[in-house]
Design a binder for these strands. Structure first.
Lengths: 205, 205
DNA sequence: ATCATTCCGTAATGATCATTCTCGAATAAA
DNA sequence: TTTATTCGAGAATGATCATTACGGAATGAT
């Protein structure tokens, strides 16, 4: 039952690759829209092996969400590392556009498509997605506090309100992407948001 | 099979009231998260009567979506009737805040929670929600075109971009509501959006 | 070569899914 | 009252759901 022992028959599949497939499927179809049979087929692993390697469906979903944050979700972490407030907000929007408009991953945000609503017996999945969204907002707020300490952000502005406003704008882009907006359209929408935020767009830099 | 005949045994339930219950359940749990058994229990009608009165699950979902547009969804229609561009945008945001922050209905948008992602065999539900979102955007664009003709909207501004930007902002508020924002928080976020749009907030009027 | 250990594949589990069949009950027209 | 018609309730349908039991296959250690 416990893994990573060197005894016994070795696994015939790459665990990370399989988890990557599961992540994409959950991302595309959501928790409820993805059956274990779908996962088994897409991952190329029989159900019993999935359960042995990852636990039940909810555990697999949690691992997929973790991998989402560690790999494709890093676009926001990269933006957070920008030295100034202005370049951070710029990067947050441009990275989001690349993330949503790119063709490597499904065209929306895992934390929304994964489970925005669900039946009563699958609420843990919805709660996990909500938790991640709120955690991301908290991180965003931390970056704004840092900007305030650096004197890059007006003391008149309410940090919590501004946090929710930025979060709202970025979520809005994710819905736009789900609506079928192209990368070019997302970019234009993001740049309109940046202009209204009083932040330079890259073509003007 | 065809309804509204005066012959035979009369129905023991109010069709509109039952549809209202179904709408709320789909709104709260989404298409896939709502089972026919759930609906039967909440509507107080046995499954066979649901099928006789509304058709299959997909047909019932479509009727629930229609009712959503006709009753709670009217908040946007009311905003569209505002005479000027500025009062329209104001009303669009304030009405959305009331709609999302009110306690009469689930705290998000039917077109998102109904089905943002789903399994392959329930894609009609997702397509219907997408269709409504795009239709709403088209209506929004129509209002902006009217504003341009009235000279209330700069010729420099791209209508399509501005439409997607407003749509994005309003979708963002719906996600905020799903995140648990209170009505007061939604209002502050909306007013921040209005200020950045260069539109007066009501407390300043 | 034997053994403990781990994994893979098959097939089953009971539950729940949407949907429909059947039949008695209730009503309007005759 | 008879008859045609519609409805309600319950049970049954086959499919799919997540999950697991079982037995053979493949490995490392002895």
């Amino acid at each position: 039952m416990r893994p990573s022992n060197k005894l016994g028959r070795p696994a015939a599949f790459d665990k990370d690759a399989a988890l990557d497939v599961a992540m994409r499927l959950f991302w595309e179809r959501g928790y409820e829209g993805t059956s274990m049979a779908d996962l088994s087929h897409a991952m190329g692993i029989h159900p019993s092996s999935i359960y042995a390697a990852f636990g039940d469906k909810q555990a697999l979903f949690a691992l997929a969400a973790k991998r989402y944050l560690e790999v494709p979700g890093q676009y926001m972490v990269r933006a957070l590392a920008e030295p100034t407030f202005e370049t951070f907000v710029q990067a947050a929007f441009y990275n989001t556009v690349e993330f949503l408009g790119g063709k490597e991953y499904p065209a929306s945000c895992f934390t929304l498509t994964g489970s925005l609503s669900c039946g009563v017996d699958t609420e843990p999945a919805k709660a996990l997605m909500l938790d991640i969204r709120l955690r991301n907002e908290a991180v965003l707020k931390g970056r704004l506090l840092k900007a305030r300490r650096a004197g890059e952000f007006s003391k008149e502005e309410n940090i919590d309100d501004y946090t929710r406003y930025l979060s709202s704008l970025l979520s809005g882009l994710a819905v736009q992407a789900a609506n079928g907006s192209t990368r070019a359209q997302l970019k234009r929408t993001a740049e309109l948001a940046l202009r209204h935020l009083g932040i330079r767009v890259r073509s003007e830099v």
